[in-house]
């Protein structure tokens, strides 16, 4: 589904953020990307739907070449759902309109069809009653669930999560993770940047560990948590799992 091969990215000639990153996500797979801050995880995931440009290498999503200048990027992006750390709901639109906007403007769905779809998804994330409210009237956890529903409304073939729980109060983390676990169990292809190792243990197929822009480890979940092959991953794990 996602093929990332030899991707390099520089912010300036002397500052390389991604170094020769190669990995893949197959259909129905859940891949967790972890690593210390500044290691390039968010940058890598944003390269997948071309929110960040990269200078060399290739990324292919479902056969579409992301790096090809001739690719219709809006069309590609409409099939790749993305959830951000800070939710990024559109504050001037009601919750239901947040879900309908791209359905109507990008996919060309009729308003009532988009509404029906939106309400179904709101029900699924347990927020049907909030449909007529505005984002600022919801808690962080609720906003992030709406953001997931908004991405799902586009019928994505793959979902990207960029630290979806990092900006949440601890008590709200689990309501968002529950939605993500359900999604994973239903067979959604997911690439998730997160520090939630509990989530990784529960549903991940593979774990990618990044450090200083490089993919240091790319292993099946059990191998990764069993005994990481690299020192750096071991150190990272011992630090975040010690509490």
């Amino acid at each position: 589904m996602i093929e990332i091969s030899h991707v390099n990215k520089w912010y300036s000639p002397t500052f390389q953020v991604l170094t020769d990153c190669t990995t893949s996500v197959t259909k129905g797979e859940v891949v967790v990307v972890c690593g210390p801050s500044g290691s390039g995880k968010s940058t890598l995931i944003k390269c997948v739907n071309a929110l960040e440009p990269f200078q060399s290498g290739e990324i292919t999503v479902d056969g579409t070449k992301v790096h090809d200048p001739k690719t219709n990027l809006p069309k590609l992006r409409s099939r790749v759902g993305m959830v951000f750390q800070h939710f990024e709901l559109f504050p001037h639109l009601k919750i239901i309109d947040n879900l309908c906007l791209a359905q109507e403007k990008v996919l060309g769905r009729q308003h009532d069809k988009a509404q029906t779809k939106g309400m179904q998804l709101l029900e699924r994330v347990g927020l049907k009653e909030q449909a007529q409210k505005f984002p600022a009237q919801l808690s962080g956890g609720q906003q992030q669930r709406v953001a997931i529903a908004r991405a799902l409304a586009m019928d994505p073939i793959v979902m990207l999560f960029d630290e979806p729980t990092s900006a949440l109060d601890p008590e709200m983390v689990s309501e968002v993770l529950d939605v993500m676990v359900d999604l994973a169990r239903e067979g959604m292809t997911m690439m998730v940047v997160t520090h939630e190792m509990g989530f990784a243990r529960k549903v991940a197929n593979r774990v990618i560990f990044m450090d200083r822009g490089e993919i240091v480890e790319d292993a099946p979940k059990d191998d990764f948590f069993g005994k990481p092959r690299s020192d750096r991953a071991q150190k990272f794990l011992s630090k975040i799992l010690s509490h």
Partner: peptide, 19 residues
């Protein structure tokens, strides 16, 4: 992130500004 979110949903630059 607002512009990114609009872009990620498939909105074009013009649509992102407009909506």
């Amino acid at each position: 992130g607002q512009k990114m979110a609009a872009t990620a949903l498939g909105l074009t630059t013009v649509q992102g500004y407009r909506y």
